[in-house]
Amino acid sequence: MQAMKESILSTHALSKRYGQRTVVDQLELQVDRGEVFGFLGPNGAGKTTTIRMALGLVEPTAGSVELFGSDVRTHGAQVLPRVGALVESPALYGYMSGRDNLRAVGRVLGGISESRMDEVLEVIHLRGRDGDRVNTYSLGMKQRLGLGLAMLNDPDLYILDEPANGLDPAGIAEIRDLLRELAAQGRTVFISSHVLSEIQQICDRVAIIQEGRLVTLSTVAQLTESGGEFIVIVERPEAALALVRTQPWGQKARLEDLQLVVPSPSGRGRDLVQFLAGHGHWPDVIRERQQSLEEIFLDLTGREAR
């Protein structure tokens, strides 16, 4: 028997308009407990506005956001302390030290001890610099402190908008590992990022929005699966393509960079090899074609790769 999924974050016909401009349009999302959920879209797609509505910062024009089953507008005081958020660039008190920033937010949350702050500072690698004024921090350090603020009371749900901003590759890898660890502990992570390779590695499901509308919502595995297509390198690709196209299952075959992209008659690679070899086209290389999340994102949002 499959365990019942517990919805941690859900939006219902969520819409936001500024004057005549619709920024978020009838958005329906559901994020379940323990998921790492990617929230993607081009700049201006409505990601940050959606996140702000989820955090009670922006009032929806229509629809609602539920956190832990309660409407954030009416039960914000109860549910928002269970959310750790990082929205866009880290917002910090620059004139105070890193530790004082933790103290300022910790006092609002209540029950955050100095030892807990030590733990968080250790995890975000700011233990030695916690007494320095935040204005002297690098962007990466500020980003880590912003994450530290989100982690302070070990929330059930993390809502992170571009958490990798300003981080070097090692920092990005650390964030990835951290999020995996949090998910393993049963925390739910809702993450918006432009680093699609990272999203592909850590997310269970992704939603892609464009112009405020949901374009797709699927598991990463489903999105990036091959669709039964194979990349085949043969000596005479044009001739092989012409051959394959004579078959009912081969209508979608094509050439990409002189490589044959072709479905298999049965969905299995060996049947494709058998067919090609049987007609004198012995493959030098054959591999399953997998799209990257970036390719899918660009396809779905109609954007050109740069």
Partner: peptide
């Protein structure tokens, strides 16, 4: 100006 308002409100401070 520092944007810290969103941090406080997003953590449930009324």
């Amino acid at each position: 100006s520092a944007g810290t308002l969103r941090i406080l409100l997003a953590r449930g401070q009324g």
